[in-house]
Design a protein around this nucleic acid. Structure first.
Lengths: 226, 226
DNA sequence: CCAGATGTTGGAATGTGATTCCAGTCGTGT
DNA sequence: ACACGACTGGAATCACATTCCAACATCTGG
């Protein structure tokens, strides 16, 4: 990457730009998942060569980070403000959940985020609500950290599941059915729990479970209130 | 991969075997992280060619899954049983935390785990304790799911941090210092929270925070008790 | 309007790693 | 000794990420 911040002189209307590249990257990522983002594919999509792309971005990692940041910012901006702290936290969490469900790649990209700057976009609003919730200063970071890890953890797992079903060309229902069957096969003595919940897998609602988890954490936080 | 399950006939003492390959993979992973596991490196390590390795394992993914499973099983076996449910859950969680801290690659490997079988190793004992905790049947899965996602989420983030510091050749302290400095640079109007917790970053204890998060979830679960 | 100077481009060249192929090797049963 | 099948090692393929570089466009000053 070279692009200086200095004098833009040109004005070709078909100009390549960091924005157009990031937009194309997001398109590829949403269509084919993390594996879909390759320089050959990107070059084809933008009708150019890899060299031109490297003029605007340092490497693939930076591209992923930029794409991730764009989506996260767009997502969080859409979350309405003004509700009670718990409701706002739920809205923020669900917003991220939905975004990560729609774009599985965000999960892994956000976690490996080289720039903690994207993460701040999420940390700040969550943190503010935790403060508003009355969580004592001493444990604010721990509380935030728990919430954040939970949100990212769920996102990561959903992403993994989606990637799996996508890669194997099977539907979510078939996937769950397969796991359910495998778990029911387990030994009753050593794996009573897995067997007992196997059935629920087929019908469970990821989003509802996620919300339940957020509520569990909120519930726990409420006991911290001074 | 071809290796049939049928007739082992040979007995060459220098024989390659799935076990030896997985052990070598774990060694490479622990030494150089996820990027350290390559077939050239593995071949060198085992003094053979890639073709021989492919006779025993299907592909890199299977190798990663197998390595992950081996470490997870070893880790969970070391967790003492017999304590109260909350204590056992804490012990299981901390066991995984420590394992993921020592072997950052487990985090990402476990999440992308193609085989839900490895995951069961973790789900089963956690689930049993949740039952013992008296969590109503209706919400057992949700409770487990929350705990699991949290554990994996923290592991994933720690892995990302370690990978970052390792890749950039800087220490954990320098890394935190850098983030702290960046956060203090933020606008006080828009990012009051990030600024206010920035200082804590430098001195916080990941393990303690993790435990606090587990306790938060346990706390929340206790309110579910019928 | 022309000659540099410079930002930009597209594609070729390089290097690395996953995966496949295949021509042996070695031990076993006959 | 012979044939067979499990196993091996390395060469051959392929798909990228990244770097290089020979044009090209546009602007600047004359």
């Amino acid at each position: 990457m070279h692009a200086r911040g200095s004098g833009r002189q040109r004005g070709r209307e078909d100009a390549l730009s960091r924005e157009r590249i990031v937009a194309a990257a997001i398109e590829l990522l949403n269509r084919d998942g993390e594996a879909g983002l390759t320089f050959p594919a990107l070059s084809r999509h933008l009708a150019t060569g890899p060299g031109a792309i490297y003029w605007h971005v340092a490497d693939k990692g930076e591209l992923l980070t930029a794409a991730c940041e764009a989506v996260v910012i767009r997502t969080l901006k859409a979350v309405p403000a003004g509700a009670t702290p718990p409701d706002t936290i739920r809205a923020l969490a669900l917003g991220m959940f939905d975004a990560m469900a729609a774009s599985a790649w965000i999960g892994s990209a956000l976690i490996r985020a080289e720039s903690s700057l994207t993460m701040v976009q999420l940390i700040e609003p969550l943190g503010q609500q935790i403060c508003a919730l009355g969580v004592p200063k001493k444990v604010r970071w721990a509380a935030l950290s728990a919430l954040l890890s939970y949100i990212l953890g769920v996102g990561g797992q959903n992403a993994a599941n989606q990637q799996y079903t996508h890669a194997h060309g099977i539907g979510r229902a078939d996937y769950l059915e397969k796991i359910c069957a495998a778990w029911k096969q387990l030994d009753a003595q050593t794996h009573p729990f897995a067997r007992s919940v196997a059935g629920e897998l087929r019908t469970h609602d990821d989003r509802a479970d996620f919300l339940a988890g957020v509520n569990l954490i909120l519930q726990g936080m409420s006991t911290l209130r001074r």
